[in-house]
């Protein structure tokens, strides 16, 4: 008989208890974090685009660092702190993260499909480097593809936070 393994996920400040296995309701070993977020938890702000870790649309924070959830297995996320785009705003006051506020202020999106992943990548960058140069911003976002060409407004938005001296 197949053994069930327990899996505890910490996502956006909530704790979720799952078991890994092949029975109904269990998380198979092959399930990606993206599938768990979107299909089990209804966190559809994280988007599927390329499905192979190339485009950045599915980025989430794992212990503060951006990872591609489409190529991350949920079974390997036990004990990690996962934050999705839905978890950036203050859960009590609803106050937006300064990055989200800057994206609104600078209209740093068009179709908006790649925007959650870009915001997560910016958060990851600012966690590691609160005062990046323009080149460091561009380099850090080079794994996030945007087809509408909102890049210029995104860079402006990120620079506004850095210049504003706010710790994101």
């Amino acid at each position: 008989m197949e053994m069930s393994k327990e899996l505890t996920l910490h996502i956006n400040g909530q704790t979720y208890e799952f078991t890994i296995g092949r029975k109904l309701g269990q998380i198979p070993e092959s399930e990606t974090l993206l599938e768990t977020l979107r299909e089990r938890l209804g966190l559809t702000g994280t988007k599927l685009s390329c499905g192979e870790g190339a485009c950045g649309c599915c980025a989430v924070l794992m212990d503060g660092k951006a990872v591609a959830s489409c190529v991350t297995l949920t079974a390997e996320c036990g004990g990690k702190e996962i934050t999705t785009i839905e978890g950036l705003a203050d859960p009590v006051t609803g106050e937006l993260d300064p990055i989200q506020e800057a994206f609104l202020e600078h209209n740093a999106f068009q179709c908006g499909f790649c925007t959650p992943g870009i915001i997560i990548a910016v958060k990851s960058l600012l966690n590691a480097n609160p005062h990046p140069t323009e080149d460091e911003i561009k380099e850090a976002l080079s794994g996030n593809f945007c087809r509408c060409i909102s890049h210029y407004q995104v860079i402006e938005a990120v620079q506004s936070i850095v210049k504003g001296g706010e710790q994101a």
């Binding site: 702000g45 839905e86 937006l96 989200q100 609104l104 209209n107």
Partner: peptide
């Protein structure tokens, strides 16, 4: 815009 930047 708010829905886009919050993933909603």
């Amino acid at each position: 815009g708010r829905a886009i930047v919050t993933g909603k």
